Amino acid sequence: MHQVFDRNLLLARRLRALKQHGHSADFLLARAAADLEERLSAVERKFEIAVDLASHTDLAAQALQRSGKAATIVRVEQDARFFTGAFPAVVADEEALPLKPAGADLIVSLLSLHLTNDTPGTLLQIRRALRPDGLFLGAMAGENTLAELRECLLVAESEIFGGAAPRVAPFADVRDAGGLLQRAGFTLPVTDIESYTVRYDSAFALMRDLRAMGMQNALTGRSRRPLTRHFFARVAEVYADRFSDPDGRIRATFSFIWMSGWAAHESQQKPLKPGSAKASLADFLKDVESLEKK
């Protein structure tokens, strides 16, 4: 399988960011955790065992706890240094889950699945780890995330070096996410997208936040060519020219694709069989036509 991301490098950068910056740049995870809690409030049931998969901090587990929807919450992360001791924890890669089949009632994941090399396989493992009528609820970065920065990097690199290498991760669109849920065998799949605009004093401030998140370029196809101060200065100039507000501050877009799906169970609502409808589309169109003539 083609490796889009260097996941060892990604893990090393996350750990370095955690050591150097702590949780100073967790505002996106905090936003996603608040959304998670709100979405769980609409689910009219409780879950015995909930798994927080690769959400980087305690924020998702705390949201689960506040929701009152989970009796037991277990965190799963690639490295023990992401744990605080507040919740039971397991060290494992989200691409190779150690969860036994049908062992969890709820699995949540915030802002990590878009950085897996085998996202379909990871979702399949999640579905298999759910008990019948178990729920998966997750968020991953969507296609508009960092669109402004992507454009400015492309312009600056093309001007200075005569060509451009990939520097921002490829993100899925909401239709792709729905297809992935169906492919993994989830029933009642639902996807939607939430977009947020964050304003910064300059592109340098945005890039500092990305470093504090450990979210520098980890693509296996990234250029190894050293970048200069002149390059980053040009990126900032282009950004300020194209994406600044009247007060001089720049805009950065972050999109969350929310996904939910259930493990199959006989109690779930099922689609009608073909031919079982009591009214035909043709009859409906005739009715519309008759109304238009009145």
Rank of each mutant, 00 (worst) to 15 (best):
T145I: 04
A147F: 11
F161W: 12
G138F: 03
A141N: 10
A156F: 01
N144K: 14
V155H: 03
E159N: 04
G163A: 13
E143P: 03
E157I: 04
I126L: 12
A139S: 14
G163H: 12
A147G: 13
A164H: 14
R128G: 05
A129K: 01
E159V: 09
E157H: 00
L149W: 00
D133L: 04
L137T: 08
L153S: 00
F161K: 00
A156D: 10
N144E: 14
G163I: 02
E143C: 10
D133M: 01
I126H: 00
L149N: 01
A147C: 07
G162P: 04
R131I: 06
E151Y: 07
L153F: 15
A129I: 04
A139C: 14
G142W: 06
N144I: 06
C152F: 11
E151R: 15
F161H: 06
A156Y: 02
D133Q: 12
E157Q: 15
G142D: 04
P132L: 02
R127L: 01
F136P: 07
L137R: 10
S158A: 13
E143F: 03
F161V: 01
L137N: 12
Q125E: 13
R127F: 00
Q125G: 13
E148C: 08
L146E: 03
A164P: 06
P132Y: 03
R127Q: 15
D133R: 11
C152A: 12
L137E: 11
L149T: 09
V155F: 08
A129G: 09
E159G: 04
R131W: 02
G134Y: 10
A147W: 09
G163N: 07
I160T: 05
R131N: 02
R128F: 01
A141P: 03
I160Y: 05
R127E: 14
I160W: 03
V155T: 13
S158N: 14
G142C: 03
G142Q: 07
L154A: 14
L146C: 08
T145S: 13
L153N: 00
E151I: 09
C152W: 03
P132I: 05
R127P: 00
P132C: 02
A141Y: 13
R131Y: 02
E143T: 05
E143G: 07
N144Y: 11
R131D: 03
Q125L: 09
